[in-house]
Nucleic acid binder design. Structure first.
Length: 921
RNA sequence: GAGGAGAUGCCGGAGUGGUCAAACGGGGCAGACUCAAAAUCUGCUGGCUUAUGCCUACGGGGGUUCGAAUCCUCCUCUCCUCACCA
């Protein structure tokens, strides 16, 4: 076998593609376009890792396949170079982020080229380029004009020692990740984009996207549209709107909870309660936000009350840590009987619990004393158990309610009562000492029950409230399940709504006390970062004129290079840059020193790819409308929410500006899987488990790496890296090259032709649908066949074309060696010919005759008759007479699913397609 | 708590009603070549056994069907994402 110099071959073709601008494209109205790209990478100094390799290769295969299929394919590349990682990395190494980025990008490019990616290199963009972020600033100003960019105060993580605002990921443990000082919460004025204006469209359009269900579900969850009711509660004589999805439980409200972060909180706190509330708030400050979900419900009484509009009851208002300030109105009506959180809170602070929904149930349980077991068995009621106190626990099916009632009337001992649930409430039967009976539904006569019969609950006579009876009932496990729950059911203790199904009650109570509204979880997008390495926000703060936008002609506002790192916001140290004159009044003014979130940069970069050199406008409308929307976009699932929602938001905004003729940027989305180490752990430098693609390319060649990575990992599932198998791929690639060196040109064997055609059509759909792994398998099978059977030059060429998307270099080389002057990369994908199915042509009769003869040899006594059982779809193919003649015995043929067949030994079940079963009698 | 994806042989993973003891790869075993090794090639890789056979087997139970890895149903487990959203 010849030694192969992969490096030389790869370099040769990479140079040729570059020289001939093979992958550079222009708009062409006559050609169908295809726009595909991966989420552009953040260019780290460490170069590309396996995850990148996997991601890039997946997209490259698609791009190359689409190109072969005759489409005008744009596959661009760029760098998401602004951002915190670059800033941190630079500070760590002691260089400037710009310098760091300027070094990292060429390194990335070099490695990407080594992989043989078919990028249109004329369209490279970098978000750190002022010519790029100029348009970030421009869009910001456009939003500012339309009040979609605005300022408001928001809490941030603040490290008192570094005097720096920390990103959430820098403050995860509740301490600063650099100096471990506990993080404080600080309120700062910050910039926001009003994405909530688009919340409904963002939500509703999800259905129309050809995206993974999972991603769509995540976006739905993130945007969180929920339908509910708004009801005004009166607080200090003023209405306070409350959002709820369970207005049916309004009679069960026993307290209110306002968010600890709510702006209006202190106005509700009375003098007497101030200390307690402040204590509570101080406790909260030290807890990091991350454990919110596991945290105990905590709170304090504010001293104020709210009036429940349904029953005019006065309920206490608490402040609580589990209520979100900017969802709804920041206060909730708490119904401890029918909400888990409210229940926990009520238990902790000993607030009363009032059940108002009786869960649906099919039977009741009761406890009775002093009855005769046989008597009760006569009416078909079972005794489940006997309690220590001498009660019988019995089960009463609702069908037997009436019989049970009359039984109790007869058998109840004077001075005792019996209670049980009915489908719509509870029923009580009480027998006076004088044997007089009293019976009633609990809802109606509870007070009578208490007053007239002297019933006591835990030796304590309750106040005249139905819910106290319910509380007492709820001490019984069975009744508790009916009363304390979050399920559907029938209303009780709810005035005129009693007996209503709770779904119906939602409608009626909404109509009576409130109105239907829609709430979103989605918040406005806070874009301010108190960081250096980001897009400067083009705003000037003037002492006189206030907030003044930078005039468009002054864009871009370029990030100053001379700044000090280490304390506070570096931009504030660039005094020359900060101090400017006001564009309006020319008076003293200062620049905004916040920079933009990097998600701003990545929200529209795919549009800029269409027109990277444009100095006059963000992009040429016509160019973008030709290429976009993106046909297939590939990237990590971690961007399911933020990046992809922000991009959708930008698209809608730019469409509203009249710059686009579509409202969704991405037609098809695909998430590649993760490449982890052998143990399934994430690869990271600190763990020392990083596999460097470049080394593998040097050792095996990039085609081998590309083939290996696609054959070993399903694109969407990823793979726990092991280099073991790469030898297998290497072998195959070498075998292929070797074969092309040595094989002769012959006439195709039928098997080869058949397999070729099958492979062409299968692989076509595999490439289309990201089933690359299957493609490598089928390619392998085809090659195995070609290697061992005569094949023509044309077949060999087709084989190379099929393989080309995965292994572009060697296929280019072998294509050339076969005498082709053109590039395989721009050749035309082969058309699949006819495929013949060998199996369907095999002769059933022959098989049957052979099988029968075999049996006849084995059987000592000669049978009288033969029964054949064949698949129902094969019956017609069997020639009964022919077989009968050959074997010399009469034959009956049955379909295997024939109900009337003669089959005493159940042989029919043994039949298989192509192989009828036989019974000899 | 909400949502999503899964469970197949030693391993990774195809397979979605019959041609399935289950593709393809990895690993393992045996053999060929070689003084030997690597590379390469060939065969085997559930059990009984060598039969056109039987048994066991696609997470577990139950069902539909002449026939189930595949369809239905219940259960168990695993992974991922979001999460006090009223």
């Amino acid at each position: 076998m010849v030694e192969i110099n992969f490096f030389k071959i790869e370099k040769k073709w990479q140079d040729r593609w570059s020289k001939e601008k093979t992958f550079e494209v222009k708009e062409d109205s006559k050609k169908k376009k295809y726009y595909t790209l991966e989420m552009f990478p953040y260019p780290s100094g460490e170069g590309i890792h396996m995850g990148h390799t996997f991601n890039f290769t997946l997209v490259d295969i698609l791009a190359r396949f689409k190109r072969l299929s005759g489409l005008n394919v744009m596959y661009p590349v760029g760098y998401d170079s602004l951002g915190l990682p670059a800033e941190n990395a630079a500070i760590k190494v002691g260089t400037h982020p710009k310098e760091y980025t300027d070094k990292s990008i060429p390194n990335f490019m070099k490695q990407q080229k080594a992989l043989g990616l078919s990028y249109d290199w004329s369209r490279v963009i970098s978000t750190a380029d002022p010519e790029y972020y100029k348009w970030d600033q421009w869009v910001f100003l456009e939003m500012f004009k339309k009040s979609l960019a605005y300022q408001k105060t928001r809490a941030v993580n603040w490290c008192p020692s570094c005097k720096t605002v920390l990103a959430n990921e820098q403050a995860q443990s509740g301490t600063c990740d650099r100096c471990e000082t506990p993080v404080k919460i600080k309120h700062l004025k910050q910039w926001f984009f009003k994405i909530t204006d688009y919340a409904d469209e963002l939500y509703e359009n999800i259905d129309k996207l050809d995206w993974p269900e999972k991603t769509k579900a995540m976006q739905r969850n993130w945007i969180g549209k929920s339908h509910g009711t708004q009801i005004d509660f009166e607080i200090n004589k003023k209405p306070w709107p409350i959002f709820t999805t369970r207005p049916d439980t309004i009679f069960g409200v026993t307290f209110m909870v306002i968010s600890a972060q709510h702006e209006g909180l202190m106005s509700l706190v009375t003098k007497e309660q101030k200390k307690e509330v402040e204590n509570f708030l101080n406790k909260l400050g030290s807890v990091s936000e991350k454990d919110l979900a596991e945290m105990d419900k905590l709170g304090a009484f504010t001293g104020s009350y709210a009036i429940n509009p349904a029953n005019k009851e006065k309920v206490p208002i608490y402040v609580g840590n589990f209520v979100i300030a900017d969802y709804g109105s920041g206060m909730v009506m708490a119904v401890p009987a029918h909400d888990q959180r409210d229940f926990e809170f009520a238990k902790k602070y000993k607030i009363k619990i009032k059940p108002v929904v009786l869960k649906e149930h099919n039977e009741s349980y009761s406890y009775v004393m002093g009855i005769n077991e046989k008597d009760i068995a006569k009416i078909g009621i079972k005794i489940i158990e006997k309690t220590e106190e001498g009660f019988f626990k019995i089960k009463i099916p609702f069908g037997k309610l009436e019989e049970y009632k009359s039984f109790i009337r007869k058998n109840l001992q004077p001075g005792f009562w019996n209670e049980f649930s009915t489908p719509k409430g509870f029923y009580f039967i009480f027998k006076h000492k004088n044997k007089k009976l009293e019976e009633f539904e609990l809802n109606e006569k509870t007070n009578d029950l208490i007053d007239n019969y002297g019933m006591t609950f835990n030796n304590e006579k309750p106040k005249k409230n139905p819910e106290n009876v319910y509380s007492w009932l709820a001490e019984n496990d069975f009744y508790k399940e009916l009363l304390i729950h979050t399920d559907t059911g029938t209303l009780i203790s709810s005035g005129k709504f009693n007996g209503l199904d709770n779904k119906e009650a939602i409608n009626q109570i909404t109509k009576e006390f409130g109105k239907k509204i829609v709430q979103f979880k989605l918040r406005d997008w806070g874009i301010s970062r108190q960081r250096y390495w980001g897009t400067p926000i083009p705003i000037i703060h003037c002492e006189k004129c206030g907030t003044v936008p930078v005039p468009e002609k002054d864009l871009p506002v370029i990030l100053p290079e001379k700044v000090k790192f280490g304390e506070g916001n570096p931009l504030e140290t660039a005094k020359d840059w900060v101090n400017v004159s006001c564009p309006k009044c020319k008076g003293k003014a200062k620049r905004e020193t916040d920079t933009m979130d990097t998600f701003v940069n990545s929200s529209w970069y795919f549009f800029r790819y269409c027109d990277t050199q444009n100095k006059k406008e963000i992009f040429d409308k016509n160019k973008v409308n030709y290429w976009c929307p993106i046909d297939t976009y590939i990237g990590g699932a971690e961007h399911s929410c933020m990046h992809l929602i922000y991009s959708r938001f930008y698209t809608k905004f730019l469409n509203d500006m009249g710059l686009l003729n579509f409202r969704e940027p991405i037609k098809r989305l695909f998430h590649q899987g993760m490449i982890n180490d052998e143990k399934g752990q994430k690869q990271s430098k600190s763990k020392g488990n990083v596999v460097e693609p470049l080394k593998l390319i040097q050792e095996y060649g990039s085609d081998t790496l590309r083939f290996f990575i696609t054959s070993v990992a399903a694109p969407d599932k990823g793979f726990n890296w092991s280099t073991k198998g790469i030898q297998g791929s290497s072998k195959l690639i070498k075998r292929i090259i070797n074969y092309f060196e040595e094989s002769k040109e012959e006439k195709d064997s039928p098997e080869v032709l058949n397999k070729l055609n099958k492979t062409i059509s299968n692989v076509e759909s595999y490439y289309e649908n990201f089933q690359y792994r299957k493609a490598t398998i089928e390619i392998r099978e085809l090659f195995d066949l070609i290697e061992k059977n005569p094949a023509s030059k044309e077949t060999k060429e087709r084989f190379l074309q099929i393989l080309n998307p995965i292994c572009p270099h060697i296929t280019e080389e072998l294509w050339n060696r076969l005498g082709n002057k053109n590039l395989i990369s721009t050749s035309e994908w082969p058309k699949a010919g006819k495929v013949t199915d060998k199996k369907s042509e095999s002769n059933l009769d022959e098989t049957v005759i052979r099988d029968i003869n075999y049996f006849l040899e084995k059987t000592p006594t000669k049978p009288k008759k033969i029964y054949l059982y064949a698949m129902h779809f094969e019956i017609k193919k069997i020639n009964k007479e022919k077989i009968s003649k050959k074997v010399g015995l009469p034959i009956d043929v049955f379909a295997v699913n024939d109900k009337n067949k003669y089959d005493p030994q159940g042989k029919a079940g043994k039949a298989k397609p192509g192989k009828p079963s036989i019974f000899l009698e």
